[in-house]
Design a protein around this nucleic acid. Structure first.
Lengths: 231, 231
DNA sequence: GTATGATTAAAACGATCGTTTTAATTGGAT
DNA sequence: ATCCAATTAAAACGATCGTTTTAATCATAC
């Protein structure tokens, strides 16, 4: 065997490196995390990363792929189940939203197996400037996005697809901030006591569905202000 | 004079460095942008950054402060105007949202004076892991956030403040992705033709207000699934 | 026990980083 | 014209980066 037996009682060097890198990437970012920081935290030799993964870039991909493959598999499985239960009938947008974002939030709530750590990393990586990371994420997400967007199109007939695409993008942003919330919100409001992850899910879901089902914007071609009526 | 006369016909070295750094920070990120890249693009000597700003960190702060001070000044002015016109009466949440996010989007639509460039940078910096950047942004935003959150609390009586705080956070995430949308969405959906910045404003506003005014989540203390009714 | 392949250890590689130092050049005021 | 402060230019600093090389150690099959 060459790589990743991965079925041993104590985590081998390869897994320790992945865990250390994941945690450090969240804490300092991809670029600011050095190989020496990673191998130091993993109690491995400096050359171990290049030996097991080939390069730092390959390690970054391995860190993301390890979690992302399983997350997207769960997402597709949830969508499959919904579509099977509907058996051709109309699917509610809330079901689709919950399948996509609920699965992610469930992983983000899993603090025992490092899922929470990874989701914080993933949330801030959607806007990562690093070119190869962006392309890698795009490829990893291609199938899932295609499936879920198609499902949303079908569940919201009459709504322009561009509008759905934008709103899905907005929902991704809200989710990203929701997951990173513990980091960012404490900077905003001094004391932010209610970071109960159990409440985060319904909070985000209400917000996302409210935004998704909001009245369509009335675009005024001139520079006249748009008229959104009150709350 | 010691620094920043800043009223000359041709941009001086200091301004050229700020513009170059701003553009490079968007393209490559803060850490991945080197002093040599900055001074090279600005047609300045390598030592010019340390001479005019003192350090790279100080330059980063200068890049953000230059735009952020004016943006937040406009935001507070818009809020002042709204509260003056209301003269004690109830203010609609849509007005507050538009004052905060509309001002930002207007800056993001200003491609002539680099406002668009900066807002893309700002959006991805909210989740920046770099410690000193986060603290700097928190300080720059402290007053504005306090004012706007207080205004939202007043305009949404009966809604728990924690809920408003979270939803404001979600709105920040949606706006961040909205501004970075041109970058990120083209990775998602292959051809994404409708990036008309004129339509972005009403699109985002509808979504934000829909999310802000969504029904409050019903939190179920057990692990029972939450019941959000359909679309 | 010994050979063999996988892994770890230790040291060094060239490159680039942010910063500093020293010198040259500029532009006004006297 | 001359001095002086501000700015620019050029070169080097030590530190750290990702990576590679070479040697030592480990585990296992024979």
């Amino acid at each position: 065997m060459t790589l990743s037996d991965s079925r041993s009682t104590t985590p081998d060097t390869r897994d320790r490196i992945l865990d250390a890198a994941e945690a450090l990437f969240v804490e300092h970012g991809l670029e600011a995390t050095s190989m020496r920081m990673i191998t130091g935290r993993a109690a491995a030799n400096l050359a171990a990363v290049n030996y097991h993964f080939g390069s730092k870039d390959a390690l970054i991909q391995a860190v993301f792929r390890r979690r992302l493959t399983e997350l997207n598999r769960q997402r597709l499985a949830a969508l499959d189940r919904i579509e099977a239960e509907a058996s051709g009938a109309q699917i509610k947008p809330s079901q689709i939203v919950e399948a996509f974002f609920g699965t992610a939030l469930a992983l983000a709530a899993d603090t025992e197996h490092g899922g929470s750590t990874f989701m914080r990393l993933l949330g801030r990586t959607y806007t990562e400037p690093n070119g190869f990371v962006r392309q890698f994420l795009a490829e990893e997400y291609a199938e899932v996005l295609e499936r879920f967007l198609a499902a949303l199109y079908g569940s919201l007939p009459g709504v322009p697809r561009e509008e759905i695409l934008w709103r899905f993008h907005f929902m991704m942003g809200a989710m990203s901030y929701a997951i990173a919330g513990t980091d960012a919100l404490q900077l905003f409001a001094g004391t932010f006591d209610d970071a109960d992850p159990q409440r985060l899910m319904p909070r985000l879901m209400s917000f996302l569905l409210g935004g998704l089902r909001a009245p369509l914007p009335t675009f005024v071609p001139t520079d006249e202000r748009h008229g959104l009526d009150a709350a």
